[in-house]
Amino acid sequence: MGLFDNIISEQLAQLSLRGVLKVDANAIVRDVVDQMKTRSIGAAIIVDQDDKPLGMFNEKILLRLLATSPQSLDDNVESHMTRSVVCINENESIVTLIRIMQDHKLRWICVVDDQGKASALTGLRGVIEYVSDYFARSVAVQPLESRIAIQQKEGA
C-alpha cells in the first residue's frame, strides 16, 4: 500500500499523539499560558470533572488577548476559551482528521476515547511527522540548514 491508502485506512493511533493539557475552567489565563509554555504545547483543553472537554484555549486566543486587552491575562480561562471543541475519536482514520482540520480551519483537535474523555491532542504536526516518516529514507538524510541560497551559482 502507498501513502494515499495508508492515510485513508490507518487510525489516529499511528500518529504521534501528544498528551493533552487539561485545565479547570476557573484557571487564570496567565497560569494556563505558563503551563502551555512549560509543556511547549499550543493548546489547552478545559475539561469538566469527568474529563470531558468544555472548551479550548490556544495560541491564537492568546495572540488576540495580547493585541486587544493584555489585562485579560488575569481573567478566568473560561471567559476566553472557545466553547465548541471539535473532537475526534481515537479510532477514526487519519484522512478524517485532515478533513476535519481543513473544514473547521483547526490546528489542534482534541482526541477523545469511547467515553468522550479527552485522551490526547493532535493536529497538523502529527500529520506532518507521519508523512515525513514515510519519506524518511529519501529526504531525512538532507542537512538541516538555514542558508540554502546558492552563494556562487555554477553552470548555466
Binding site: 504536526r125 506532518i128 508523512v131 515525513s132 516518516d133 519519506f135 529519501s138 529526504v139 538532507q142 538541516l144
Partner: peptide, 11 residues
C-alpha cells in the same frame, strides 16, 4: 516532502 521533513525535524 522536503518541506514537510524539515518542518518535522525542526518542529
Amino acid at each position: 516532502a522536503r518541506a514537510l521533513n524539515l518542518m518535522s525535524v525542526g518542529s
